[in-house]
Structures are given as structure tokens and as C-alpha cells.
């Protein structure tokens, strides 16, 4: 019993070493194409954190998978029925069983530790860059503590509202009147370098906000606010779509985030604001004219 067990242990160690070497040598190019790891690429720390956490767990997973498969294949080949083969009538081995139970627990402890180490990068937003800081405003943390704010408390906060089958975004304008805010559908425009905080709502059924390159998805649940954030460093367009079944056209409820440098973003914002003010004034004029026309002497 002793010698085969030792031989087995050596063989296991060998398979583990070979498999981890094989994994590390897999070109990073393969990993970046979304074949074996989640997307990232906007330079936002949360997506990168998730991706590296995934890869760390992936290394452990490959070692375990290849190790167990190796052991299984070895067993199946070596102990296939043959003439004169005598099956050994053992009922168990307490020491062996306790050791693999402890082994499995240790792997999970390791994964937990790695997760909590990486969690800060994924969960806690950083401060905005100096270039985008003027765009941000200071928020007081919500009472339920679910919205995470950067150390200086300053974010650019956009409200995301999911409705069948489109996303609507409301941009902050510094006052309490939300009726004249800049808004857009489907495409969200954000400044690079700013920590963008999202408050996610739903108007009808549940939806889920997800731009793979900008980190995880967060459900838009009617009656609740959900929170996430990102901080993009690369200007560009990042695409995603609703990730929670919301009806027949769920597949067409797409979203994209266009990241612009702060100056360009400000220009876009001012254009939108002017257009809205203009539309408001036109409406007010038309309304006044209508009132005048129907007013009696």
C-alpha cells in the first residue's frame, strides 16, 4: 500500500508541474481574445481586476483538472481488466481520504485569499485623474452603504434606466431639477480619466447593465437602485447589451459607452445642453402662443 501511494504522489506532483508550465506558456494573445478569459481593454481597473482574478483561479483550475484527469486516465489504463489481474479488496484509507479533504479545503482557502486581495481593485473605485476632476462632484454615500465611492468622494454620476428595450442615461447638471438634465439613449458618453459612478434603475421588468470590457454586469431591478463604476483610460467605443431576459426583443437591447477626452466630452455635453435648452424654449414659446390664442378678451 505504501509504495504505490508514494509513487502516485510523485506522479501527481509531476503532472501538476507539467500542467502549470503548459498553462503559463499559453500565449497571452489567446487569452486576450475572449476565448479563455473575460474581456477587458478600456483600462478600467475593475475589468482588469476581474480578468486577473479569473486567470489566477484559472491556473489553479487547470492544475486540478489536468491532475485529476491524469490520475484517472492512468488508473483506467493501468488497472483495466486483464488475465490474472486481482482487484485489491480495500474499503478505504482514512489517511488518504482525510488528506484530500484537507487538500481541497486548502485550495479553496487559497482562492478565497486571492479573491479578497484582488477585491479592492474590483470593488473600490479610485480617484479621478486630475484632468477630469473638474467634471466630478462630491457625493455623500448612500445610507445602505452599497454604493462605493472613491477616497475623495468625487465621481461623475450617471443614472442608467432600463426599459423595454432601450437604455436611457441621465447626466448630472449640478442642480436638483432632473427635468432639464442632459440625457441620451443607447449610447452613453463619458469622459476618460473620470471615475464614472452608475446608478442603475429599471422602469418595467428586470434588465442587466453589461459592457464586458468595462467590468461586471449589474441588474436593473424595478424598485431598487444598483450601483457600479468604471474609470476608462483609453478613448473609444465599448459595446455591450442587456444581460437579463426582458422580453421578446431582449437580444436587441444593446448599449455602448463612448469615452472621450474631458475637453471633447465637455463640448459634447454643452451641445446637448444647448439643444435641450433650445427645445425647452421652443416648447415654451409654442405653449405661450397656444394659451394666448385660446385666451378670451
Amino acid at each position: 500500500m505504501r509504495t504505490p501511494a508514494r509513487r502516485l504522489r510523485r506522479r501527481l506532483a509531476l503532472t501538476a508541474a507539467v500542467s502549470s508550465a503548459a498553462f503559463v506558456s499559453i500565449p497571452a494573445a489567446v487569452a486576450s481574445a475572449g476565448i479563455i478569459a473575460p474581456e477587458s481593454g478600456g483600462g478600467t481597473p475593475n475589468a482588469e481586476g476581474i480578468r486577473s482574478l479569473y486567470l489566477l483561479i484559472g491556473i489553479l483550475a487547470v492544475i486540478v483538472f489536468v491532475g485529476v484527469c491524469g490520475l484517472l486516465i492512468h488508473t483506467l489504463v493501468k488497472y483495466r481488466a486483464s488475465k490474472g489481474g486481482v482487484p485489491s479488496q480495500v474499503h478505504g484509507n482514512n489517511r488518504l481520504e482525510v488528506s484530500w479533504t484537507v487538500g481541497a479545503a486548502l485550495i479553496l482557502v487559497l482562492i478565497s485569499v486571492v479573491t479578497f486581495v484582488k477585491l479592492g481593485q474590483i470593488y473600490e473605485p479610485p480617484n479621478s485623474d486630475a484632468s477630469a476632476l473638474p467634471l466630478t462632484s462630491k457625493l455623500t454615500p448612500a445610507a445602505d452603504g452599497r454604493q462605493k465611492l472613491p477616497p475623495n468622494g468625487r465621481v461623475y454620476q450617471i443614472d442608467v434606466n432600463g426599459l423595454q428595450y432601450v437604455w436611457r442615461y441621465t447626466y448630472p447638471d449640478g442642480d436638483t431639477n432632473n427635468l432639464n438634465n442632459v440625457f441620451s439613449y443607447e449610447e452613453m458618453v463619458v469622459p476618460t480619466g473620470a471615475t464614472v459612478a452608475l446608478r442603475i434603475f429599471a422602469q418595467d421588468v428586470q434588465h442587466s447593465w453589461w459592457i464586458p470590457q468595462l467590468g461586471g454586469k449589474f441588474d436593473a431591478v424595478p424598485g431598487y437602485a444598483n450601483y457600479t463604476w468604471f474609470k476608462i483610460s483609453e478613448p473609444g467605443v465599448y459595446r455591450g447589451q442587456c444581460a437579463e431576459l426582458c422580453g421578446r426583443n431582449h437580444a436587441n437591447m444593446v448599449a455602448q459607452v463612448r469615452a472621450l477626452p474631458p475637453a471633447k466630452f465637455q463640448a459634447w455635453y454643452d451641445r446637448q445642453k444647448a439643444a435641450i435648452r433650445n427645445a425647452d424654449e421652443q416648447a415654451a414659446k409654442a405653449r405661450n402662443a397656444a394659451i394666448k390664442a385660446t385666451a378670451g378678451p
Partner: peptide, 10 residues
């Protein structure tokens, strides 16, 4: 792992 699930869920 919940942060990883944020990417993989659904």
C-alpha cells in the same frame, strides 16, 4: 467567486 461572476453571470 462573486466578482468573477459579475462577468460570467447570465
Amino acid at each position: 467567486v462573486f466578482p468573477v461572476d459579475w462577468q460570467l453571470h447570465d
